[in-house]
Simulated assay, not measured.
Amino acid sequence: MNASTALRQGWQKVFGTGARSERPIAPDTTHGTILYLEDITVSFDGFKALNALTLYVDAGELRCIIGPNGAGKTTMMDVITGKTRPDAGSAWFGQTIDLLTLTEPQIAEAGIGRKFQKPTVFEQHTVLENLELAAAGNKSIWATLFSPLTAVQRDRIDHVLETVRLQDRRDTRAGVLSHGQKQWLEIGMLLMQDAQMLLVDEPVAGMTPQEVERTAELLLSLEGQHSVVVVEHDMNFVRSIARKVTVLHEGHVLAEGTMDQVQNDAKVVEVYLGE
């Protein structure tokens, strides 16, 4: 596989395939809620991965989603991002954007970004080039890399570099970054795409204690400016960032509340925290 093919495949994995369409209208969050999942059901060979799941996330909220393996966390994110179509139910981004009518690239352009557990960055390119590619829009990959940045683009990149604390790594090849730094770079790439909602899957798996602490600070700093949904198994980390926690079990919401409330819920202790 040559370098251009590898880069193209990496681009498609992060940003989707096909032509980038016109960005849908911004989500209407005048009611305070940015994500509406109602009665979402997804079945695989008779197994209900999601079973009439209903979940609401407010604009600017930092929400943690926990639950045992098989609870439906990944399937929920697949529905939100258009990877999986539900058998029943509705999914809205704000008051006006019906997620079930959009493709994966259209959902990304509408303002929903997803960070997988394993970082997906362009390892042969620098931190700066990764951020440039994320902000490319309709420009081609090579035109992006070899075109001069505008003042507005430079300012935005500087702001994102500061947010993810990679200012001193801007000219470093992404492949030599630590695991935690790659995770932060990928979050920075979502910020460069103007993602209003970030879906973050197990962000601290494999991190050092120092990286875990920095990741908590980063996600908390995004609260209010972005809606952030964090799926995580590390309960100490969840406690360090959680405002509101949703517990999934067998494809539906088992409990919801503060970390103390869900930890003291007898049903939660029985099916998850007490394991």
Rank of each mutant, 00 (worst) to 15 (best):
S4K: 09
R8A: 14
G10E: 05
V14F: 07
V14L: 15
G18S: 06
S21T: 06
E22K: 08
A26K: 02
P27R: 13
H31K: 14
G32D: 11
L35I: 11
L37K: 04
L37S: 00
D45K: 13
G46N: 13
F47M: 15
K48M: 04
K48C: 00
A49T: 13
N51P: 10
L62M: 11
I66V: 15
N69D: 06
G70K: 05
G70Q: 10
G72Y: 03
K73T: 08
M77D: 00
I80G: 00
T81N: 11
A88M: 10
G89M: 02
S90A: 12
A91G: 09
W92A: 03
F93P: 02
I97R: 00
D98G: 07
L99A: 08
L99R: 00
T103E: 11
I107K: 00
E109W: 11
I112G: 02
I112K: 05
R114K: 15
F122R: 02
E123G: 08
E123T: 12
Q124P: 01
H125T: 03
V127R: 04
L131E: 13
A136Q: 14
A136L: 08
G137N: 08
W142P: 02
F146K: 00
L149H: 07
V152R: 14
Q153A: 14
R156Q: 10
E162H: 09
E162F: 04
E162N: 06
R165K: 08
Q167E: 09
R170A: 14
H179L: 09
G180E: 09
W184H: 02
L190E: 14
D194P: 01
L199C: 08
V200F: 13
P203S: 11
V204L: 03
G206S: 00
T208R: 07
P209M: 05
P209I: 05
E211F: 09
E211L: 09
R214C: 01
T215V: 02
L222T: 04
E223H: 03
H226K: 09
S227R: 01
E232N: 04
D234F: 08
N236M: 06
V238N: 05
V238T: 01
R239Y: 12
R239G: 00
R239F: 03
R239N: 12
I241S: 09
R243F: 04
G251R: 01
L254C: 10
E256I: 06
E256L: 02
G257I: 06
M259D: 13
D260L: 05
D260V: 01
D265A: 01
K267S: 15
K267P: 05
V271E: 13
L273Y: 08
L273M: 11
